[in-house]
Amino acid sequence: YKIYPYDSLIVTNSISVKLPKDVDRTRLERHLSPEEFQEVFGMSIEEFDRLALWKRNDLKKKALLF
Rank of each mutant, 00 (worst) to 15 (best):
Y1S: 08
Y1M: 10
Y1H: 14
K2G: 07
K2H: 10
K2C: 07
I3H: 07
I3T: 10
I3N: 04
I3L: 06
I3V: 13
Y4K: 02
Y4F: 07
Y4S: 01
Y4H: 04
P5L: 04
P5I: 03
P5H: 04
P5N: 05
Y6G: 01
Y6H: 02
Y6R: 03
Y6L: 05
Y6Q: 01
Y6N: 01
Y6D: 01
D7R: 14
D7H: 15
D7E: 15
S8D: 12
S8G: 04
S8L: 15
S8W: 14
S8H: 10
S8E: 14
L9V: 02
L9G: 00
L9M: 04
L9F: 02
I10V: 10
I10Q: 07
I10H: 04
I10N: 04
V11N: 09
V11Y: 08
V11E: 06
V11F: 09
T12Q: 10
T12Y: 15
T12C: 12
T12P: 09
N13T: 10
N13D: 14
N13I: 06
N13K: 09
N13F: 05
S14F: 06
S14T: 11
S14H: 13
S14C: 15
S14L: 12
I15W: 06
I15Y: 06
I15V: 14
I15Q: 15
I15K: 12
I15G: 15
S16I: 10
S16Q: 12
S16C: 15
S16R: 08
V17L: 08
V17F: 04
V17A: 15
V17H: 14
V17M: 08
K18L: 12
K18Q: 15
K18S: 15
K18F: 08
K18C: 15
K18V: 14
L19F: 11
L19M: 08
L19D: 05
L19C: 06
L19W: 09
L19I: 08
P20A: 05
P20L: 06
P20T: 04
P20S: 04
K21H: 14
K21L: 14
K21E: 15
K21W: 11
K21V: 13
K21N: 14
D22A: 05
D22M: 04
D22V: 04
D22Q: 05
V23P: 02
D24S: 05
D24N: 07
D24K: 05
R25E: 11
R25W: 08
R25C: 11
R25H: 11
R25L: 12
R25F: 08
T26P: 03
T26G: 11
T26Y: 13
T26S: 13
T26N: 14
T26F: 14
T26K: 10
R27N: 14
R27I: 05
R27E: 05
R27T: 06
R27P: 01
R27M: 09
L28N: 01
L28E: 01
L28S: 02
L28M: 05
L28R: 05
L28Y: 02
E29N: 01
E29F: 01
E29V: 01
E29M: 01
E29L: 02
E29S: 01
E29P: 01
R30N: 04
R30A: 06
R30L: 07
R30Q: 05
R30F: 03
R30D: 02
R30T: 03
R30K: 09
H31A: 02
H31V: 01
H31I: 01
H31C: 02
H31L: 03
H31Q: 01
H31G: 01
L32G: 00
L32V: 03
L32H: 00
L32R: 00
L32N: 00
S33F: 03
S33G: 07
P34F: 11
P34M: 12
P34L: 11
P34G: 09
P34H: 11
E35R: 11
E35F: 11
E35P: 09
E35D: 11
E36N: 06
E36V: 08
E36D: 12
F37G: 00
F37E: 00
F37D: 00
Q38E: 10
Q38H: 14
Q38I: 11
E39L: 14
E39H: 13
E39W: 15
E39Q: 14
E39C: 12
V40G: 01
V40P: 00
F41A: 00
F41W: 01
F41Y: 01
G42A: 11
G42N: 13
G42Q: 13
M43T: 04
M43H: 03
M43W: 02
M43P: 00
S44Q: 11
S44T: 14
S44A: 13
S44P: 14
S44K: 13
S44D: 14
I45R: 10
I45H: 08
I45M: 09
I45Q: 07
I45K: 07
I45P: 07
I45F: 10
E46T: 12
E46K: 13
E46M: 12
E46Q: 12
E46I: 14
E46P: 08
E46C: 10
E47H: 09
E47G: 06
E47A: 12
E47R: 08
E47K: 09
E47W: 07
F48M: 02
F48I: 00
F48T: 00
F48E: 00
D49E: 11
D49M: 09
D49L: 07
D49Q: 08
D49A: 07
D49F: 06
R50V: 12
R50P: 03
R50D: 10
R50E: 13
R50T: 13
R50K: 14
L51E: 05
L51D: 02
L51H: 06
L51C: 06
A52L: 08
A52S: 14
A52Q: 10
A52D: 13
A52P: 15
L53D: 09
L53T: 09
L53M: 12
L53V: 11
W54D: 12
W54H: 11
W54G: 09
W54R: 10
W54M: 08
W54K: 10
K55C: 10
K55G: 04
R56F: 01
R56E: 01
N57S: 07
N57R: 09
D58L: 13
D58Y: 14
D58F: 13
D58W: 13
D58H: 12
L59E: 03
L59P: 00
L59T: 02
L59S: 03
L59M: 12
K60S: 02
K60V: 03
K60C: 02
K60I: 03
K60R: 07
K60G: 01
K60Q: 02
K60E: 01
K61F: 08
K61H: 07
K61M: 10
K61I: 10
K61S: 07
K61C: 09
K61T: 08
K62L: 09
A63D: 01
A63R: 06
A63T: 06
A63H: 09
A63L: 06
A63E: 02
A63S: 05
A63G: 04
A63F: 07
L64H: 13
L64Q: 12
L64V: 04
L64C: 13
L64P: 01
L65A: 01
L65S: 00
L65N: 01
L65F: 03
L65E: 01
F66A: 07
F66V: 08
F66P: 04
F66W: 14
F66L: 10
F66D: 07
